[in-house]
Every structure is written in C-alpha cells, then in structure tokens.
Design a protein around this nucleic acid. Structure first.
Lengths: 125, 125
DNA sequence: TGGCGAATTGATGTTCTTTTCAAGTTCGGC
DNA sequence: GCCGAACTTGAAAAGAACATCAATTCGCCA
C-alpha cells in the first residue's frame, strides 16, 4: 500500500474543495468541454481556470485531449458524479434538519438567547 | 436558496479535507467515541484534536454530548459513510488504473523518457 | 515563416489553514 | 470549596493554497 487510506482520501477531498473546481465538474457532467467554453461558464480568466484544471488533471479526476488548437476536458471516472450526488443529499438533508432546529430554537427561546448560537447546541443527556 | 450549490459543496469537501478529520470519521463508524478515546487513536494532542473536532462539529458533520466529565462524539448523518465509501471506490479504481498506465509507460518507454512523467500523458486524438 | 489565438506555466503577494502553546471552563471527588 | 482530569478556546507562528500577472508553448493559417 502507498499511504494510509485516510491521507489519500483527505487529499482527494482537498482537490475537490474549491467552488470553481466543483463548478467545472458540474459542467463536465453534460459532457466534454474546451477551456474556451469553460471560461465564461465558470467565470474565471484563462490562466486561473487553467490552474484549477491542472489541479483536477494532476489528481486524475479529469483528463484532457488536444483537438486542433483547443484542449477539451472530460471526467476520468463518472463515479465522481455519484460522489457529488451523495454530497448533495447529505447537504440538503442536514441543512434542512439544522434549519428546522434553528427555527425551533428561535421560536421557543428567542428572548432568552442573546446572542443567538452559531452552531447547534450540544445535546445533553 | 442560500448560496450556489457548488460553493456549499466546496465548503463541505473542505471540512473533510484533512487526514485527521477523515481518521476521526473512520473511527466514528464503529460508534460513539469520547475525546479521550480518540486521542491515542488519532494520534493528536488534546487541543489539536479538539480543534479538528470543532471544525467537524461546526459543519454539523458530527455531534457531541457530555457524559459526566467526558464528551462523546458521533456522526450526525451516517450517509457520510456512503460518501467515504464512494470516495474509496473511486480512489482504488483510478489509482489502480493510473498505476497500470504508469507501469506500462515505464516498461515500454523508460529509456526514451528522461525524466519520467509525473502525471498521465495527455491523450492525443 | 511570422503572427495570432488558445492554453499552460512560473513567479509572487496575499490570504487561509494548520499547528502549537498557554489560558480557561466544566465536572467530579476529596 | 479546592484540586485534578477532561476538554475547549484564543492567539500567534508556520505552512499551504489562491489569485494575478507576465512569459511561454503550441498549433493554425495568411
């Protein structure tokens, strides 16, 4: 084995941990895109976008091929979309629950709490 | 909606993007753990571990409850383990493929390539 | 073959994260 | 009440990532 699994996973998540890189992957879900096509869609200037694409490429998350004078990108493994989908269900789920909890707290104890809590209160036994 | 989905996802992945935090989640897969139990298992000193737990807690990925003088942690949503499982299949998959590719390159073109490439070569059309 | 468009790379300042240490809180036992 | 154990918090140094600009490569075509 190369390195502990938790370290490899952490690096993997780190390469995903940037809004532009997530955006790029979302766009590539509809199929291959050239850098020129991505620029307006992602909203970064060419060199910055290229840096972000490089990070995804070096992590083997996307791959590129030259077509004439352009470079076209696509994902290396479509299971990455499963990952994004699971992340989405977790986020919508927990956010929904967290918001509900916050709403309850605000309704019941708003006058007591000054200032309101930033994170969900610790659950007491 | 609060913010664009790609931004929320990026933040979510960012909270996971640390070896110790992944390790903590792996350990919590077997059930609730106190901070004192986690210290030797994760291998961080108390204050450092507490910082990392705080990051997971503020992101609602784990929750804590006091039991006597100890604090016990557990995951808020077990679907996080689905996420880690999908990540694992992607990593074992692409790493296996990448290693195979590298092995092929080294075998066939080792004398030609000086130095050997760091990333998979661009696919030509 | 000279120049232009497409994309990447390198270098650099800035900002964010990680790590460490000291100080603080909370709880239980004496 | 006071002390020690279990954690957490705050602040500051060290390290990593991000964003930006200039310079470079590569292919095309006039």
């Amino acid at each position: 084995m190369t390195r502990p699994i938790y370290q490899v996973k952490a690096e993997f998540f780190k390469t995903l941990a940037h809004p532009a890189r997530i955006r790029i992957l979302e766009l590539l879900q509809d199929g291959e895109r050239s850098v020129g096509e991505l620029i307006p869609e992602v909203g970064l200037e060419a060199s910055h976008l290229s840096q972000q694409l490089g990070i995804l490429r070096r992590a083997n998350i996307v791959q590129s091929r030259k077509v004439g004078s352009t470079v076209r990108y696509s994902v290396s493994d479509r299971r990455i979309f499963d990952l994004l989908a699971v992340a989405k269900t977790i986020l919508t789920g927990t956010l929904a629950e967290a918001n509900q909890l916050l709403a309850e707290l605000e309704g019941v104890e708003f006058t007591k709490l000054q200032p309101p809590p930033r994170e969900a209160p610790r659950q007491e036994i």
